[in-house]
Design a protein around this nucleic acid. Structure first.
Length: 722
DNA sequence: AGGCTCTCTCTTTTT
DNA sequence: GAGAGAGCCT
């Protein structure tokens, strides 16, 4: 009778699926069937342990993971799992806040601020309060606020020091929160923090959900941040059954607040958990796994070792490209080979550390007639025109939404200039009013010039009449009419460019999206629901999976995916590990985990490529192979060098170079020698400490008296002997 | 208001 | 080198 659940599961997976323990930790290595265990466990609980789906809460990080989990569970159960709560932390928090908006001290029609909205709001606040945005750049302020919220800290929880920088940040945080509250706006971090406070401060609400959710399952636990952990801890009582699944080796989001330590902490907070390691890998060949194991072994970790019952497979190919163009051509050639041997493009992924790397690869694939698709990047609901249209809708729902007001008051232009707006802002601020309230008041007073007054009045009337005329329409008709009345399309038509044309198409697509949207089991109005959906689930709908394309994406976005053939590109110091991560041990270890994630994406064949010269930030620089390459045992790697035709001028150099770059070469170069004092037109006098490279690409390291240590390309540096 | 030039910076990304 | 943003000019 267990066949249904246990078919195709190994012993440890079976153990995890059917564990009767109250607290279960599944340490699931890459490709070890983690999602399968999670979905089977839900089905198991539901059917074998008679746990009602209503009592189960499953938490993930992305909408995609949540959707996939739901569909796989329903497939196992054979019926739709109504009542089962599966969602992202943010999605679930949002749901709770909507249901208990009063206790959460929110307005019923509160709207969600995305990162871009948040950034703009902060920028406006800095300006309005005359805060120097070179000292406190909006990006940093935003990071500070989100970071504090992720730690569960309000402005009042932070202490002032003698440090003016810090104190100002706290003040801005305070100002920002006041502005959000006044406009009924909730940012992403606020969703989590506000929900935490809701549960903490309302025992009736907390008790209700504590009793309801007898079973809580959390995926990707290594990605939880402080507030998410605290939220779970609130929700889980002594009798709650908890299953957490995670992999400390795949924690790659520390930079946005994720705390790997939460896995270790969990073992202290919940005594005697059952710990099951899933180490059998069903994805990759032995060689690939051994490489991954060898690399990750250099980290501090709980310790797992992936193994496979399959064969060793091909060795990993390491290609030392001459430069990034050569690297891209090599990849294109290997893709051609693969496809000629009956492989197809959709089996292939090209991974890179940073998005900037994709350009050369794209150009090369284009030239080689290889269809590709770049993942990540712009999302539909983040496009400017879509956000404009949505801002009109937000104003319909809530006139006090200052962020929306700012966005569309003069979009498309209707003669409301900067001076009118700044007067409006000043008045609103001094009277503690929203911009809408201030505008209504001042227009009535005929406060502005006749022209400005008129223009503002037109805008106010427009919004009001939008609301009246759309009141009884269906969601898509509502949005259609709002777009029409906003004259956004007319403005783009006038512009007439290709870009403007695409924007019009996107607006049409927005209406389509609205027509397809339905919020069955929610007490929100369709418009509230749609607006929240647009912010919270803005991506994902990347269809066209059936096209036979090579996948291009960052290492980060490759997590959770697998491909028969994988190219990991730009495996060079400075780039990977990224220069900004290589000094700090914690961050370096995260880079190494990223490398581990990258390697374990490959099922059959893995190529690692690096370029000896790469154009980065506009400069062509000599690059060393990544330290991660050295961490892979030699016997797993086949090293390939560029064909001599490509690298002729530098061939001797490349042959000479070992993977471990030799410390310092004592040779003379271009008439200079180590220890020599030279002069540079800009940097002044300095002493030559080192050389790198040969011929016209020779780089020289100089310790300048005034400006410190620098690497220069000798041929261009214009050095003169002193 | 809109377009132009100059300057500056330069990961990773989901919600 | 490229894109974003600020500031300036028309």
């Amino acid at each position: 009778m267990y066949e249904k659940y246990f078919a195709e599961l190994n012993d440890n997976q079976k153990l995890a699926v059917s564990s009767p323990e109250q607290t279960l930790i599944v340490l699931a290595g890459a490709g070890s069937g983690k999602t399968r265990v999670l979905t089977h466990r839900v089905a198991w609980l539901s059917e074998q342990c008679a746990v009602s789906p209503y009592s189960i809460l499953a938490v993930t990080f992305t909408n995609k993971a949540a959707a996939e989990m739901r569909s796989r569970i329903e497939q196992l159960l054979g019926f739709p799992a109504h009542g089962l709560w599966i969602g992202t932390f943010h999605g679930l928090a949002h749901r709770l806040l909507r249901a208990h908006w009063q206790q959460a001290r929110l307005e019923q029609h509160f709207q969600i601020l995305d990162s871009d909205d948040q950034f703009r709001l902060i920028k406006r606040l800095l300006k309005a309060n005359n805060i120097d945005d070179t000292m406190w750049p909006p990006k940093q302020v935003q990071w500070f606020i989100n970071n504090k919220k992720d730690e569960g800290l309000r402005a009042k929880d932070l202490s002032y020091h003698s440090d003016n920088y810090n104190n100002t940040l706290i003040n801005i945080y305070e100002l920002y929160q006041t502005a959000c509250d006044q406009s009924s706006l909730v940012d992403f971090s606020e969703l989590l923090l506000r929900c935490y406070e809701l549960l903490q401060q309302n025992t009736d609400v907390l008790n209700h959900y504590q009793q309801r959710f007898s079973h809580i399952l959390v995926d990707e636990f290594q990605d939880t941040n402080t507030i998410q952990y605290a939220w779970l801890k609130l929700l889980a009582t002594e009798s709650t059954c908890l299953t957490i699944v995670g992999d400390d080796d795949q924690s790659i989001y520390g930079w946005r607040g994720a705390k790997v330590e939460n896995i270790y902490r969990f073992q202290r907070d919940y005594p005697n958990p059952q710990i099951i390691k899933l180490e059998q890998n069903y994805r990759s060949t032995g060689n690939i796994l051994n490489a991954a194991n060898a690399v990750i072994a250099n980290n501090d970790r709980l310790g797992k070792n992936l193994w496979t019952s399959g064969h060793d497979g091909e060795k990993i190919t390491l290609y030392a490209a001459f430069n990034e163009i050569d690297e891209a051509r090599f990849i294109a050639a290997r893709i051609k080979d693969w496809c000629e041997q009956a492989g197809c493009r959709r089996e292939i992924a090209i991974l890179y550390r940073s998005n900037a790397q994709s350009r050369i690869i794209e150009e090369t694939l284009l030239q080689s007639n290889i269809a590709y698709r770049v993942y990540g990047g712009f999302r539909f609901f983040e496009r400017a025109e879509i956000k404009d249209a949505l801002a009109y809708l937000r104003l319909l729902v809530n006139r006090n939404d200052d962020a929306a007001f700012e966005r569309v008051v003069n979009t498309p232009t209707r003669g409301i200039g900067e001076r009118t707006l700044s007067e409006l802002r000043d008045h609103a601020r001094s009277q503690f009013q929203s911009l809408w309230q201030a505008a209504s008041f001042l227009v009535k007073q005929s406060h502005f010039s006749a022209r400005a007054n008129n223009a503002l009045q037109t805008f106010l009337t427009l919004i009001d009449s939008m609301q009246q005329r759309t009141a009884d329409l269906t969601l898509d008709d509502q949005i259609g009419l709002v777009i029409q009345m906003s004259r956004l399309v007319n403005a783009y038509e006038k512009e007439g460019s290709e870009k403007a044309h695409a924007r019009i198409e996107n607006l049409d697509e927005l209406i389509n999206a609205a027509a397809q949207y339905s919020n069955e089991d929610s007490d929100m109005t369709p418009l509230d629901g749609f607006l929240s959906y647009a912010v919270l689930e803005s991506g994902e709908t990347q269809g066209q999976a059936d096209e036979d394309c090579v996948h291009l994406m960052t290492l980060h976005s490759a997590k959770g995916l697998e491909f028969p053939l994988v190219f990991m590109t730009g495996v060079e110091e400075e780039l990977f590990p990224h220069q900004r991560s290589s000094e700090d041990l914690q961050r370096l270890q995260e880079e190494r985990r990223l490398c581990y994630v990258g390697i374990t994406r490959a099922m059959q064949k893995l190529y690692l490529t690096y370029a000896e010269y790469r154009r980065l930030h506009g400069r062509i620089d000599l690059h060393h192979p990544s330290r991660f390459i050295k961490e892979i045992p030699d016997d797993l790697v086949d090293e390939v060098r560029p064909k001599t035709t490509i690298t002729k001028p530098f061939g001797h150099n490349i042959k000479q170079r070992s993977l471990r770059p030799s410390a310092s070469s004592q040779q003379h170069s271009l008439g200079f020698r180590i220890g020599q004092t030279i002069s540079h037109p800009k940097f002044g006098e300095g002493v030559i400490l080192n050389f790198e490279g040969q011929g016209s690409q020779t780089k020289v390291q100089v310790q300048f008296a005034d400006t410190g240590l620098k690497w220069l390309v000798a041929a261009y540096a214009n050095l003169t002997a002193v």
